[in-house]
Amino acid sequence: MATENAVSAEEIKVNAAKMHISDTDVAIDIIAMHKWYGEFHVLKDINLKVMRGERIVICGPSGSGKSTMIRCINRLEEHQKGKIIVDGKELTNDLKKIDEVRREVGMVFQHFNLFPHLTILENCTLAPIWVRKTPKKQAEEIAMHFLTRVKIPEQANKYPGQLSGGQQQRVAIARSLCMNPRIMLFDEPTSALDPEMIKEVLETMVGLAEEGMTMLCVTHEMGFARKVANRVIFMDQGQIVEQNTPAEFFDHPRHERTKLFLSQILH
């Protein structure tokens, strides 16, 4: 009896945990989402559920809608049909809600998009001070903490134009982290970098993944995908064609398009 009771108690816990998962542990939920650029149907029937702590790599040929999809998640692009729910908030035309979502979602761009008229430190403290209303001194401490983490605290008082591409991208990551985001989006973060600098940026990203950050990453770095992703998503012609664990995805691709793509990029 006692053991039975214990089991059932366990079951209750598990069920509770499952309930918990279905309620609050979904970071991003995209349901039947479509997007058009004028007449052009760029994203078709996108369904994607991302759990908290999941690391997802999105790959696919150019023009397949990877970047557009990831940019819909913080509403840099508007979707026209379906639902996107980020952190429990549905993205609609409600500007206040959009800003709320953006505060919790960090984004790293292909071309860094640092603010060239501000120093590295000011780049990192700007949003905490103005959006989170963090006192300046505290914001600077936080910024220095993250700049140390991306290994460039000594550049704090320089301007972005004085840094190498790899350093700038690490600053961009630190700038996002200063907002203490719950989700990080990476839009081809290493595509504009020299080969030697890709490694330093990827190392930073691996470090983030190891800490359990929820990450969506559009990238062509298949080594990174194998190493840190829970799931690889392959897109073509504006739709998700295949998704699987990295091991399965790379070793046993199922869709013809995926096989073709992998044969082109893996030698």
Binding site: N74, R75, L76, D99, E100, R102, R103, V105, G106, M107, F109, H111, F112, N113, L114, F115, P116, H117, L126, A127, W130, V131, R175, S176, M179
Partner: peptide
């Protein structure tokens, strides 16, 4: 455009984005 997007992605509102990022430049 990247400057606008950088500001947007950090959650800056319209006037913050314009006043702190776009107009100074």
């Amino acid at each position: 455009k990247g400057q606008y997007e950088g500001a947007d992605s950090l959650g800056l509102g319209y006037w913050q984005k314009m006043g702190l990022i776009v107009l100074p430049q």
